[in-house]
């Protein structure tokens, strides 16, 4: 349940931000969650709702946007979407670190972070 750690980090950051600016009410928080980060949006929402109660973030909307994976290949210089493993019996195709063009091992360039993009408040 690292979603609770992530939700706590969101709340800590946003409440700190609100306190400094004397903001009484947070309306929404937008997160960018990388496709490669092992964060489950539904669990994150559940934790967020639970720990924002009786704070300036109570009833605020948690918006989660997915950041798609971008990989770069050190051999053929490919940069773009990863090769997906689609018949792995999983609910969704799994992004892999195999270069879609030359088969070499690629590095993830985007899509492995989890960040607060913006905060809406009154």
């Amino acid at each position: 349940m690292h979603e609770l750690s992530i939700a706590s980090a969101v709340v800590e950051k946003v409440l700190g931000f609100a306190q400094v600016r004397d903001i009484k009410k947070i309306l929404s928080v937008r997160l960018a969650v990388g496709e490669l980060s092992a964060v489950e949006p539904e669990q994150l929402r559940f934790c967020y709702t639970a720990i924002t109660q009786q704070t300036a973030m109570e009833d605020s909307v948690l918006e989660i946007e997915t950041v798609e994976v971008v990989v770069r290949c050190p051999r053929c210089s490919y940069r773009g979407p990863p090769k997906y493993w689609s018949d792995a019996l999983s609910a969704a195709p799994i992004p892999t670190l195999e270069c879609p063009t030359c088969g070499w091992a690629v590095e993830p360039a985007e899509g492995n972070d989890c960040a607060i993009k913006s905060v809406k408040f009154i």
Binding site: I6, A9, K13, K117, S118, V119, K120, F121
Partner: peptide, 25 residues
């Protein structure tokens, strides 16, 4: 009791934060 605050659009502030949650670790 639930209190609802409805803000008019000119009262809403939207701040770009770009704060990585995994960065502290």
């Amino acid at each position: 009791m639930i209190q609802t605050i409805e803000a008019s659009p000119d009262e809403i502030y939207d701040i770009e934060l770009e704060h990585s949650l995994l960065e502290a670790n």
